[in-house]
């Protein structure tokens, strides 16, 4: 395995600076957030590197659980800040976090206990990276799905209300928006599975191969991970969109767009 020097990474950083220069020149307006995100990548990954080293050296279920919960909280926050119109109050974080918790955690625990059968099942070398991958992708699905849901509900307010006025149930009035939102949340993972290996080598597999693993063994793990990610992100997206679509109406089935924040 060829080890990377800080100079190697600095060369890669120059590419980010060039991309930032381009967005600035084209007045796309995301230059600051691009640079900030890149800086976060460096700091967060370095930190997690040390945390993982510590947790791997001390495989206690409590540390694994705490790390898992921390990951969930951060994912919940990420889902929230990416919404252009988010639910007000505690619902903004709770909706995404709850559905991610249910889907990503159960899928990961299922894989750890039944499929991988590590001993103990929470062995951090398996638990943390798996949870991270499932959670990360579920997060994408959930935030895309919720964003589409709240966006369409505000854009199509008159149409939803036209149906309510004719005596349609709230669930029927929002049904097409709801399924459309779930579909949007599913697109990334379906694309990833369809293109896996042909267009791009999935990240985890690439990592294993770079680290010197047998490609066929790496592929087996990648298939497992793909399936876990797909299940986790589809369950999570469907759950979050379903909960969100209920929250858009009150007990008298009135469309309550006042439960969404203004566009940010």
């Amino acid at each position: 395995m060829i080890l990377l020097s800080p100079l190697d990474l600095a060369l890669a950083a120059v590419l980010i600076l060039l991309a930032a220069g381009l967005t600035h020149w084209m007045r796309i307006g995301e230059t600051a957030s691009l640079l900030f995100a890149a800086a976060r990548t460096v700091v967060q990954l370095l930190l997690i590197g040390y945390v993982l080293k510590a947790v791997f050296g001390n495989a206690h279920w409590l540390w694994v659980t705490l790390l898992g919960l921390f990951m969930l909280i951060v994912a919940g926050r990420e889902v929230t800040v990416r919404q252009s119109r988010r639910f007000t109050g505690a619902w903004s974080v709770a909706l995404g976090s709850f559905s991610m918790f249910i889907s990503a955690f159960s899928v990961t625990i299922l894989a750890l206990t039944i499929v991988i059968d590590a001993s103990p099942w929470y062995t951090p070398q398996y638990a943390i990276p798996l949870l991270g991958m499932v959670l990360g992708n579920t997060m994408n699905g959930v935030s895309l799905g919720l964003d589409r849901l709240t966006q369409s509900a505000s854009d199509k307010r008159e149409i939803i209300e036209a149906r309510l006025m004719l005596g349609h149930r709230a669930a029927d009035a929002i049904a097409s928006i709801r399924s459309d939102s779930i579909r949007v949340g599913m697109i990334p993972i379906i694309n990833a599975m369809a293109a896996a290996g042909l267009v791009s080598l999935p990240g985890m597999m690439t990592g294993q191969i770079l680290a010197g693993s047998d490609p066929v063994e790496a592929v087996k793990y990648q298939i497992l991970v793909m399936f876990l990610i797909a299940a986790g992100s589809i369950f999570g997206t469907a759950g979050a969109v379903w909960l969100g679509s209920r929250r858009l109406f009150d007990q008298r089935e009135r469309l309550r767009l006042d439960r969404l924040s203004d566009k940010t």
Partner: peptide, 19 residues
């Protein structure tokens, strides 16, 4: 229930919307 009520009490707005 809400949908029963709105079937009974029909509201027609000046502008109509179609889904």
């Amino acid at each position: 229930n809400p949908s029963q009520w709105r079937s009974k009490v029909g509201l027609l707005l000046a502008e109509s919307f179609w889904w």
